[in-house]
Design a protein around this nucleic acid. Structure first.
Lengths: 213, 213
DNA sequence: CCTTGTGAAGTGGTTCACAGCT
DNA sequence: AGCTGTGAACCACTTCACAAGG
């Protein structure tokens, strides 16, 4: 395996490129950096630099093969075989995510939805049965799960994260509006509605437009 | 007013600091950059640099006044008076957000939830009545709304964004898994579950740990 | 003595501009 | 002729290290 390391900033854009490529006209065989740049709202030079980290495979004078590029990006992101994911917290947001149709399309499948509330256990969300949090570890081991999503109330997030780490998860997506602390080697990404609104608020309160993003 | 411009990277961390400060023991009068850095999982020097852009108000040898700092951050983010927000798309995610209790606490209130599906109009989500998208413009004008959230299916996102822009919104938070294009001067932030999972996937597939975040 | 505030150095990312292929 | 791939310049952010102040 060619040991190139892809810069963080590029990694965060690869899913974006992938989505744009997938969203293009099926009949389009090739895309230029300019096309993709427009679709993704970024600078064309950036697109080329980014793609060059995947081990360049464009054709000069022509562009990139759309399908092949999708394949390459998926490969680098590790999406070529669908990865199992668990969701902890069967509240509104957890339910919304469990119902989210895009999992399969984006390379994931939901192994289970967990909650600590016994009264929810046994009920289903869109066919997904809700399991008690106590069965998390066993399920994760059985299905070789490494990724999980926290959709609990903020007060339960830290404890949940710890259970997840114990269950062997290495990658956590935290939707709870709080910061969780995890040991070295575990990777957490935080997604928070109010944080995002607050950032928008900052730019909204300044005269148009000191661009955000 | 002292016309300092706060770097983007700092702006994205201010809500984080704010949340950490609010989450601390009520009795704590002062915080040091080291305290806050630990809570927020960042480098202490970064905290100090960031806070210095707010017009430094720490006390050497002591730290920052917790309440005052919260106040300062809120001020810079424009959160001192609650801002009205609209949600477009009354599906699972839209409902989850409409139910989200943190709006008030973080400086926002929901003016309305909108959908294009007539059969949903008139029903309520957690007390919030769902209105038809056609009343968006009038409501936004009436309540002086400048911020909106897209929680429609991806196919409807672009059209929705255009309606929002027409209705006078300048700041859009897009939860639909697609890229929307808007005119100059309108600010869009994208939040996408599968994008986040894909980024985690990348780091998960590499030996521990080329840290992400 | 402790903790802030900040120049200065270091790091990483972006953008330009053009050489190199096809 | 057109578009990629990339060195090099540029810019932004991070981190260090220490002087300044309570």
């Amino acid at each position: 395996m060619k040991k190139i390391t892809i810069p963080k900033a590029t990694v965060t854009r690869l899913p974006l490129y992938l989505k744009c490529l997938e969203g293009m006209d099926e009949t389009l065989a090739t895309v230029s950096s300019a096309n993709l740049a427009e679709a993704a709202n970024v600078n064309p030079a950036k697109v080329r630099k980014d793609l060059s980290f995947l081990g360049s495979n464009g054709t000069r004078g022509v562009g990139y093969d759309r399908m092949q590029l999708c394949f390459e990006i998926r490969g680098h992101l590790g999406l070529n075989i669908a990865a199992p994911v668990v969701i902890i917290g069967a509240g509104n947001l957890g339910s919304a995510l469990a119902n989210y149709g895009g999992f399969a399309a984006s390379g994931f499948y939901v192994v289970g939805v967990y909650d600590s509330d016994q009264s929810k256990v046994g009920t289903t969300i869109n066919g997904q049965p809700i399991a008690h949090i106590s069965s998390l570890a066993a399920d994760c081991e059985e299905h070789q799960v490494t990724m999980g999503v926290i959709t609990t109330p903020p007060g339960a997030a830290q404890e949940t994260a710890e259970r997840m780490v114990e269950a062997g998860l290495r990658s956590i997506l935290n939707f709870a509006p709080t910061v969780v602390h995890v040991p070295e080697g575990v990777d957490v990404r935080r997604v928070d509605l109010s944080t995002e609104l607050q950032i928008l608020s900052y730019y909204g309160h300044r005269s148009p437009t000191e661009q955000a993003s």
